[in-house]
Computed example of a mutant assay.
Amino acid sequence: MSAANVDERVFEELQALEAIFSPDIIIKWEDGVPKGVEMNVLPSTCDNTDEQYVRLTLEICLSPDYPETSPKVIMRNPRGLDDRILSCMQSDIEDKLNENIGHLIVYELIEMVRECLTQCNLPRGQCVICLHGFVQGDIFIKTPCFHYFHSQCLSKHFIAGKKYYEEELDKLPAWQRMEAKAYQQTCPVCRSTVQFNVDDLKLAPPPVESIDAQPFHLTDEIRSMQERMAALMAHQISRGGVIGIGDTEPPPLIITDPADQQEPKSSTSGTQSAPRPETSTSVRTTGNSASGAPASPTRPPYRLRGFNRRGKPGRRGRGGSR
């Protein structure tokens, strides 16, 4: 499809969108043909970015014969919005598209989504630290990566994280402590680097829901779940699926020498020890010994796993043939 086949109204609409929303809007072109529009939509808060608690990326893919057919609308990277709100927004968008076939609709879609975000400009879901929801009266914080936490909860997270960092740092030798990076606050969700004043966060009151929350008690449902998880854990351990349970130290690489493979010698009483059992990977010796007697019975190969003493992969032990 060439640019000559595109409705002239589409070019006029895109020019108007770029003038209104630049530099926040991205118009995608391919060989001079418009393919779509992408924009990060935020709630209207009179340019007060600190009070913009929700957002999403709106992508509008234009069909070749738009506006005679409806564009495809995709909402990506939502922040502070739960599935119920996103589902309602998607339903409203589809109704809007069906009612306006044959009309330019991109600007109206952007404004409709912005209006919805303005009405829902309060984080949904739970604080991942305390697991309580956000309700009216809560003092919460928004990170630059658009994740939300109660201010007091985030202060506790940073205090605990710094304490753990210092405990682990003390375990290192002096030369590693000198080279270690300083403690850095990170977002509990995406691990992005953030910077907050912990003393200010500690002054915030606890979450509203935590004040009226009932004391925890072990219910039959929780006890049943614990029993199922314990049985699953035991099954995983028995199958070797859990590493570190009961280990006193990391498992070393097993490197054996030819001396480890020597056959048992006869005891002074004349009684010979039982030979080692033969395995499916045994190597038989077919030559004769220096006395002309048959060679010793079948001997298993070197039990090398991992690397030999030279630090190179292989099956040759120390003292083996080169």
Results as ranks from 00 to 15, higher is better:
M1Y: 07
S2P: 02
V6L: 05
V6K: 01
D7S: 05
R9P: 01
V10D: 02
E12N: 10
A16P: 01
I20H: 08
P34G: 06
E38N: 07
N40D: 13
T45S: 10
T45P: 00
C46F: 13
D47E: 11
T49G: 06
D50W: 09
E51P: 01
Y53H: 14
V54F: 00
L56Q: 02
T57Q: 12
T57M: 05
L58K: 00
I60R: 00
C61W: 00
I74N: 08
M75S: 02
D82I: 03
I85H: 03
S87M: 08
C88T: 09
G102D: 13
H103A: 00
V106G: 00
I110P: 06
E111V: 09
M112C: 10
M112W: 04
R114F: 00
R114M: 06
R114V: 02
Q126T: 14
C130V: 12
Q136F: 11
Q136Y: 03
G137P: 03
I141F: 03
T143L: 12
C145M: 06
F146W: 11
S155E: 03
K162H: 07
K163L: 15
E166T: 09
E167N: 09
E168Q: 15
E168W: 04
D170Q: 09
Q176S: 09
Y183L: 14
T186M: 09
P188S: 12
S192T: 13
V194L: 14
V194I: 14
Q195Y: 13
N197H: 06
D199V: 04
D200L: 09
P206Q: 10
P207Q: 12
V208T: 09
S210Y: 05
A213V: 07
Q214H: 04
P215K: 08
H217T: 15
L218N: 06
E221N: 10
S224D: 11
Q226A: 15
L232F: 03
A234V: 02
H235Q: 08
G241H: 04
G241A: 04
T248N: 14
P250S: 12
P251G: 07
P251K: 15
I255E: 08
D260N: 02
E263A: 05
E263V: 08
S266W: 02
T268C: 14
T268D: 14
G270I: 11
G270D: 13
T271W: 08
S273H: 13
T285E: 13
T286V: 13
T286C: 10
G292F: 02
A295Y: 07
S296L: 12
S296V: 14
S296Y: 07
T298P: 05
P300V: 07
P301Q: 11
G306K: 14
G306H: 12
R309V: 10
P313N: 04
G314S: 06
R318K: 11
G320Q: 08
G320A: 05
S321M: 04
